[in-house]
């Protein structure tokens, strides 16, 4: 059982939703899906006022920059598979909304950043769910998330050492460097130095708000394991090392 893989935390949230409300959420999901027809919709929804400005809500999510991947799935009762007699019949009263994300930071940091930073976004996606307390105040919101959260049995990350920010900065750094290497092949020493300095100053991050987040992403920070987010996970990791070293002793014998 572990919700932690390096810098990433696995959140699984399963919340009931009235069947008749499902369509509203599906519309909201669709509106938030980044695809071409959205451009027109954005233009349209922006004019309906901030409550409907989905692009702005996504903006908050991007600015938070804690998530690697996230998904929402709604499963209706009749969609639960029934594969024959060896499986007991079920009669679920609700449809279920499943939310899965891979994020950086601690549980509290993530949950709190969402409720403080983009409360409307959360309410937009969950307020049709049974018992949703709204994302502010935080006490009931924490309770709701804790109550409906399911622990991960097995969690894998291909790059546990990297926060979402680390990846964005690495990608930008690599592109800029490659471009520089290409450009610099024919440069003399002086020109090289000047251009290298320019490169470094661009890698520090560019504040021009017209630039995309990625273009101005700061690239010069170091990358190392995250500070410990949970004492429990430290204990688990220690135990694991101990188990392994015991096993190794046995193997050696």
């Amino acid at each position: 059982m572990s919700n932690i893989a390096g810098k990433a935390f696995a959140m699984n949230l399963i919340t009931p939703i009235e069947r008749k409300q499902v369509k509203w959420n599906k519309v909201a999901f669709w509106l938030l899906t980044p695809s071409k027809p959205r451009n027109f919709l954005n233009w349209f929804t922006k004019r309906l006022g901030p409550r409907f400005d989905f692009a702005a809500k996504l903006n908050g999510l991007i600015t938070l920059s804690m998530i690697h991947y996230a998904r929402w799935v709604i499963v209706k009762p009749e969609e639960w598979p029934h594969l024959g007699t060896e499986q007991p019949r079920e009669d679920p009263a609700y449809a279920y909304q499943l939310f899965f994300s891979n994020f950086n930071g601690s549980w509290a940091q993530y949950v709190d950043s969402f409720s403080a930073g983009i409360p409307e976004g959360l309410d937009g996606l969950w307020n049709k769910n049974v018992g949703w307390p709204t994302s502010v105040p935080q006490g009931p919101f924490h309770d709701y998330v804790r109550h409906n959260e399911v622990w991960t049995n097995y969690y894998y990350s291909a790059y546990p050492m990297a926060a979402s920010n680390d990846i964005k900065s690495s990608k930008r750094l690599r592109n800029e460097l490659l471009d520089f290497i290409d450009r610099s092949e024919k440069m003399g020493a002086k020109e090289f130095q000047r251009e290298y300095h320019k490169l470094l100053s661009s890698l520090q991050g560019n504040p021009n708000p017209d630039f995309t987040a990625e273009e101005k992403f700061p690239c010069l920070g170091q990358m190392a394991p995250t500070p410990i987010v949970s004492l429990a996970s430290v204990a688990v990791r220690r135990a694991r090392v101990e188990i392994r070293s015991v096993e190794e002793v046995h193997d050696a014998e």
Partner: peptide, 26 residues
């Protein structure tokens, strides 16, 4: 079950690209 909404922070990067870029950065 197909996701109703899916978000990826760096959708154009493959695993190898990410790992490679991280290596460059380090």
């Amino acid at each position: 079950v197909p996701a109703n909404l899916f978000y990826a922070a760096y959708p154009e990067s493959t695993v190898r690209e990410v790992q490679r870029a991280l290596d460059w950065k380090e």
